[in-house]
Amino acid sequence: MLPWLVTTWQQLSALLSRDQLAHALLLTGPDGIGKSSLANHLADAILCTASSRPCGQCKSCLLRRAGNHPDLLVLDSSASSIGVDAVRQLSHFLHGSAQQQANKVVLLTQAEKLTESAANALLKTLEEPPKHSFIVLTSAAAAMLPATVLSRCQKWPLAAQFGDNTQQWLAHQTNRSVPDFLLAYCAGAPLKALQLIESGAADTLQDGFNSLQQYLAGAVSLTSCVKQLDSIAELTPLLGWFLRQQLLPGMLNKEPAKQLALQQLYSRWCRDEKQILGQNKQLALTAMLISLKRLSR
């Protein structure tokens, strides 16, 4: 169990042991916080025939480990949306008889992808859930779910992690260096941060961050900075984070005109990146950096 999820897991486990666990639970939090990990662990516990915690030894736990438990349905959320057919499959599954014990579980990740018709269909099951059925939903954008669905789910928000303990956890998971700014850049999502570290993208982001600071301080040339930033796949998120964390705070309540101009500059960058096909990225980046330096003075 990921250390920052232990308290939430203990609370869920206690409810399960007292038969007080809600039929529909919604785990929310940023991507990379561990929602799917917690959802799967909870499913294991609900299906375990020996304990309110996964024992790992009973037939149900062995089936779960083998990946073919008949009383668990994991809905596919890999497409751009989750349609009504998937929700009908969910309903049909839950209304069937359990094969191992009383409980049946559905895991629905990225619930914000539910179409309007799918959400309406799900609402019927949430309003009248079959006995011993559990639906565990996860979402990084719960506000996109209809209020009617939200009101019928017990919500479990997973807080973003920025503390020293999480920084130490990251350091113990990898042999690579952990940039100081990475957890903040990842909005407090340690698993996302770890993925960036292991892929080497974190080092590239660190180099880009350093290059931006040095360019604005006059320590490196415009050409050098453009060359460095042009190689970064996640350039737009990095620029946005740099503006929010490094430049805008110093302008609050002091230079509202510059603050507005910075926000407009970044908005244009995001718009042009999406809308202008075949854009000369280096030319656009050069113009962006020149304006950025002028506004940062």
Rank of each mutant, 00 (worst) to 15 (best):
residue 292 L to E: 03
residue 207 D to K: 13
residue 91 S to I: 10
residue 82 I to P: 01
residue 16 L to Y: 00
residue 75 L to Q: 08
residue 35 K to R: 15
residue 98 A to R: 05
residue 114 L to N: 06
residue 191 L to H: 07
residue 135 I to A: 08
residue 20 Q to D: 01
residue 105 V to Y: 09
residue 166 T to A: 08
residue 238 L to V: 09
residue 52 S to L: 10
residue 232 I to H: 06
residue 202 A to S: 06
residue 98 A to Q: 03
residue 69 H to E: 13
residue 213 Q to Y: 02
residue 87 V to S: 05
residue 161 Q to A: 08
residue 34 G to M: 11
residue 230 D to S: 15
residue 283 L to A: 08
residue 249 P to K: 13
residue 252 L to N: 09
residue 276 I to P: 02
residue 104 K to R: 14
residue 1 M to C: 04
residue 88 R to Q: 10
residue 70 P to T: 10
residue 95 H to F: 11
residue 118 A to V: 05
residue 23 H to L: 01
residue 2 L to M: 06
residue 158 L to C: 07
residue 147 A to C: 01
residue 278 G to T: 07
residue 228 Q to F: 04
residue 280 N to P: 07
residue 70 P to Y: 11
residue 153 C to K: 10
residue 1 M to G: 12
residue 176 R to H: 04
residue 97 S to K: 14
residue 155 K to I: 14
residue 79 A to F: 07
residue 225 C to T: 15
residue 157 P to S: 10
residue 4 W to Y: 09
residue 240 G to T: 12
residue 206 Q to A: 13
residue 75 L to K: 08
residue 224 S to Q: 12
residue 195 Q to G: 09
residue 23 H to Y: 08
residue 108 L to C: 05
residue 212 L to M: 09
residue 52 S to P: 14
residue 106 V to Q: 02
residue 276 I to W: 09
residue 279 Q to W: 00
residue 204 T to Q: 15
residue 188 G to Y: 04
residue 11 Q to E: 06
residue 214 Q to K: 10
residue 140 A to I: 09
residue 252 L to F: 12
residue 164 D to S: 14
residue 63 L to S: 05
residue 126 L to N: 04
residue 17 S to E: 13
residue 252 L to I: 12
residue 269 W to H: 06
residue 279 Q to V: 10
residue 126 L to C: 00
residue 261 A to E: 13
residue 241 W to T: 13
residue 38 L to V: 05
residue 100 Q to F: 03
residue 68 N to V: 12
residue 148 T to K: 07
residue 25 L to G: 00
residue 246 Q to C: 14
residue 275 Q to Y: 09
residue 209 F to E: 09
residue 232 I to T: 06
residue 122 L to Y: 06
residue 119 A to C: 04
residue 222 L to I: 07
residue 215 Y to N: 02
residue 43 A to G: 12
residue 274 K to T: 05
residue 44 D to F: 11
residue 134 F to V: 08
residue 247 L to M: 08
residue 119 A to H: 08
residue 78 S to L: 13
residue 197 I to N: 05
residue 54 P to T: 14
residue 196 L to F: 03
residue 41 H to L: 15
residue 121 A to K: 07
residue 131 K to C: 03
residue 41 H to W: 11
residue 122 L to E: 07
residue 147 A to K: 06
residue 103 N to M: 07
residue 222 L to V: 02
residue 88 R to T: 07
residue 23 H to F: 04
